[in-house]
Design a protein around this nucleic acid. Structure first.
Lengths: 168, 168
DNA sequence: TTGTTTCCCATAACTTCCCATGCTAAGCCT
DNA sequence: AGGCTTAGCATGGGAAGTTATGGGAAACAA
């Protein structure tokens, strides 16, 4: 089992819109199928599909899995079209420079409300990029949602409820 | 069945935030799937999700089980996102140096209220790290809770009650 | 040109690596 | 059994490497 994205960092966005990817995240990105020492490290940045103001970042391997899921839907179906365009149009595959940075376009920054600082949040097989304010708000919101669930405040219960809800 | 985490130790935290993992715990960490003599010993440190002020440490094998449970939930579901960020954002995967130490970030130390000493507590398939004060308080609290149960002070009764509560 | 993006170099703070020391526990020899 | 030797452990500190970040020059687009 490969390395996973874990942890939480706040980094600066410089005047040119560049951000440093946390070093441990780079190690994960370097773990993809076709990367070899010295080659530029690839990554895929996707604007979050729902209302959350953040960016999702995937390894190229993980993105391939998502693409496959979409490709498995019937050609010309409304759902496939929608997913394709949401995922493709709002995404960007790029790579890290020698210092482990990449450029966030003005558009991407706008989506996440990022100005001078960016929060990197590990999500196991992907990571998210938030503005500090956006992340704080999301966290508060999520905790509130957890509290509102029938069995609040307990990961064990949440996990089991989710398993039961989705599992067949 | 592999070696398990047992016992309780108090170690120093040095000026650089490093702690020595008790030698018997290292033997357990070395027991994971893909570790071989000479390689760095991996471990995953997770901030406790609930109100307890401590850190949980897992072997990579144990953590993979948890990750798999999360990964089994539908992509983009609220539950998967919530669990991913709760589990991953507050965690860190690292490894031991040649002296059996690893660095606890300032953030991690803050979560557990750790300053100059850290208490390592075996939990069978994981272990916890506490500040001496935090651990003392937790223990007192737990004993009190045991006393308050209908059939206090009896592991056999507690175990059976728990089995009935969670098992289907 | 002018503005933007990429590449490259510089640097200060931080982290990891490595060696050293005192200590404890375990083995061993007579 | 008693005392000596060896191995492993917890801990300290210096050196060397990494990392985050700034800025200039070079490539590129409009």
């Amino acid at each position: 089992m490969a390395l996973r994205f874990r942890g939480e960092w706040t980094h600066k966005v410089d005047a040119k819109g560049r951000v440093s990817v946390p070093a441990p995240f780079r190690r994960v990105l370097e773990g993809v199928e076709d990367w070899s020492e010295g080659a530029p490290v690839p990554l895929v940045v996707v604007k979050n599909q729902d209302r959350r103001a953040c960016l999702n970042v995937y390894t190229t391997d993980e993105m391939a899995l998502i693409d496959d899921d979409v490709a498995a839907l019937p050609r010309f179906s409304k759902e496939r079209d929608a997913l394709s365009s949401l995922l493709a149009a709002g995404s960007d595959n790029t790579s890290l420079d020698d210092n482990g940075r990449f450029g966030l376009s003005a558009d991407m920054r706008a989506k996440a409300g990022i100005t001078t600082q960016a929060v990197f949040v590990g999500m196991i097989d992907s990571f998210q990029i938030w503005s500090p304010e956006g992340y704080a708000a999301y966290k508060a919101n999520m905790l509130e949602w957890l509290q509102a669930e029938p069995a609040p405040d307990d990961l064990f219960v949440l996990m089991n409820a989710a398993k039961e809800k989705y599992q067949t």
